[in-house]
Design a protein around this nucleic acid. Structure first.
Lengths: 145, 145
DNA sequence: AGATAGATTAGATCCATTCTAAACTGTTGA
DNA sequence: TCAACAGTTTAGAATGGATCTAATCTATCT
């Protein structure tokens, strides 16, 4: 974990910076720190409040408003994907590739289903002037009766 | 639209009453009126605010709190199904049979996809102690680029 | 009809999210 | 290098959907 230059795969500090630049977002202290929290450990599903708390723990000074702004900007830039599975709360998924979700309703646990394993067939015809943005599949699990 | 007795299929006034009774809910004036609004014209997707406005238009005196209560009770009783497609707003679907949805993101229009036409294959294994409650598919449409 | 559990209600409250407008900062170009 | 400006951050206010409270009302049972 030093600042030295090395292969792309192992550049934990400059990778977030590149992401921001590519997305046309100014690499500010706050955005860099949040990008680091979001992207440095695999696929995650976070809410704004969660990320804000995490930032606080990591001694990153950032307001809740900025966390919201940043999550929305990252989403618009394609760095995150919004997941709507629960009324009244938004989650953001760091996995932006084509995939689906399993939700354990009782616990709120959300997991990815890799794209390849699941297939949807028989999609209806798309009305004129519209196109499919994406197809979301959510498998809802409950405790066995 | 008269109160006369006739075959089950065409009994607009007593059908809601039967529904409530079967669900173990007291047939109050408010619940009957809301059931009538909800179920007397085909499959619908409504929010609480929408239904409340509709009730007002129909000269049905009912508070917003009761609309919320009723929608939740009906959902618990299996008369409605909650549809989560938009962060921060709940919709209730009068179609409780197995089916999916198409959402026109730009307009907010929500339409049903009949169960038969669409198939999901390759569902992941279900962890021990859990079972599939249901599988929701949402096809998101956007204006063609 | 009287008793009572359940239902309704207005208004307060909650909570996630967005807005506001003032202060701050990254970037650009002289 | 640094002034200037557009973009960013921020605390706190505002918004909006949904729930809660506790007082009043009503369907139901005896």
């Amino acid at each position: 974990m030093s600042g030295m230059t090395m292969a792309t795969e192992a550049r934990p500090f400059s990778e977030p910076l590149d992401r921001l630049k590519r997305a046309g977002l100014r690499p500010t202290r706050q955005r860099l720190a949040l990008a680091r929290l979001l992207f440095s450990r695999g696929d995650r599903h976070v809410s704004a409040e969660q990320l804000h708390a995490e930032a606080k723990t990591a001694r990153v000074v950032v307001s809740l408003a900025t966390v919201y702004n940043t999550l929305n900007q990252f989403t618009r830039a394609g760095l995150l994907r919004e997941v709507v599975v629960k009324a009244g709360r938004s989650y953001f998924d760091t996995n932006t590739s084509d995939h689906h979700h399993v939700l354990a309703v009782a616990t709120g646990d959300l997991m990815d289903i890799p794209a390849g394993t699941l297939a949807v067939s028989g999609l209806p015809e798309v009305p004129d002037g519209l196109e499919v943005e994406r197809v979301d599949v959510v498998v809802r699990l409950r405790p066995r009766a």
